[in-house]
């Protein structure tokens, strides 16, 4: 079937897509191009002359211990959040799929956390994890100093991971549930006839058949944790204590807008962009193609 629309004038189709192209250009390609430009120049903090410096900005950030520390922090946060979010979402979906069929209402309710803006989540979790007034204050009442994300870097990271995972669980859950419900019912029944109990069926049939969903979510979650974590960090820890939670996006912001090192921040954002592009390529090249059965 011919699905292409034919236009008499070659101008009309371009006019139709022009608004979208403009938006993409103004808000994506232009800033990206600017960032590229800045990454290879030395920008004055208050504007004015800029100087071409080649790879110097990159050499500087790759030679900086603080930068590598932020990469490590980012990786810890990204993998921690993704693993936790995927695991919890998978368990929730497995149990919901087994017990409550056709629970459309629950599905909608469970995706809501994803629609909450990160700063709002950050605020909520700041209260929850507050060492003096939050849920964990009872812990401190028993063992003073047992929980203090304001002083202890590990606690702060744990808190961020929990908050980040809380948001992603909702998203992952919906995909897992949809994946589970698309597994043909007879397969589960066949496994039951073959002698497998519910847990065995989850392990042998449902989880392996969810592999495409699983890899999709790994990539999406990692990308999301790298790029969308700014709001949480800014509200909850502001990168502290002692840079223990200074992830890559937060460092870009801190260096660029607080330290006024535009060029260094631009170089960092180019590196981060490269990382996200890499993940996306993996997603399309390997995951989408290889993980489908039959």
């Amino acid at each position: 079937m011919e699905r292409r629309a034919t236009f008499r004038s070659p101008l009309l189709p371009w006019l139709l897509v022009l608004p979208q192209l403009l938006i993409i250009f103004v808000f994506f390609y232009w800033p990206t191009g600017e960032a590229f430009h800045w990454a290879f120049t030395l920008e004055q903090p208050w504007g004015g002359g800029r100087q071409w410096v080649g790879w110097q900005n990159f050499q500087e950030i790759f030679g900086s211990a603080a930068y590598w520390s932020s990469v490590r922090t980012s990786l810890t946060y990204a993998f921690g959040t993704s693993a936790l979010a995927i695991l919890i979402a998978l368990l929730l979906a497995l149990f919901i799929d087994r017990e409550v069929r056709a629970s459309r209402g629950w599905r909608v309710a469970l995706i809501w956390p994803y629609a909450i803006a990160a700063p709002a989540i950050g605020m909520i979790f700041r209260f929850v994890f507050d060492p003096r007034a939050g849920v964990f204050s009872t812990l401190n009442a028993l063992w003073p100093g047992a929980w203090d994300p304001a002083l202890n870097g590990t606690h702060a990271m744990l808190m961020l991971i929990l908050a980040g995972a809380w948001q992603l669980v909702a998203y992952n859950f919906v995909f897992f549930l949809a994946g589970l419900q698309s597994i043909p019912r007879p397969l589960i029944e066949a496994a039951a006839m073959d002698g497998a109990g519910p847990l065995r069926r989850m392990r042998d049939i449902q989880v392996p058949l969810l592999a495409p969903t699983f890899f999709f979510l790994v990539v999406i979650n990692l990308t999301d944790s790298f790029t969308n974590s700014f709001g949480l960090v800014d509200i909850m820890t502001a990168g502290g204590p002692a840079r223990a939670t200074e992830i890559m996006v937060y460092k870009i912001y801190a260096d660029g807008f607080k330290g006024l090192d535009y060029s260094g921040a631009a170089a960092q954002s180019i590196v981060l962009m490269g990382l996200v592009i890499l993940l996306t390529v993996i997603q399309f090249r390997f995951v989408e193609r290889k993980m489908h059965y039959r």
């Binding site: 043909p184 007879p186 029944e189 496994a191 006839m193 073959d194 109990g197 049939i205 058949l209």
Partner: peptide
């Protein structure tokens, strides 16, 4: 439970496990 009834079943659309080989499918029970 189904597994305790001593029955085996062949389904209309065969219900073979798509992620297992033929040998694994047959050997699964």
């Amino acid at each position: 439970e189904p597994k305790d009834r001593g029955c085996a079943m062949v389904f209309q659309n065969y219900a073979l496990y798509p992620h297992m080989s033929v040998a694994e499918n047959i050997g699964y029970p």
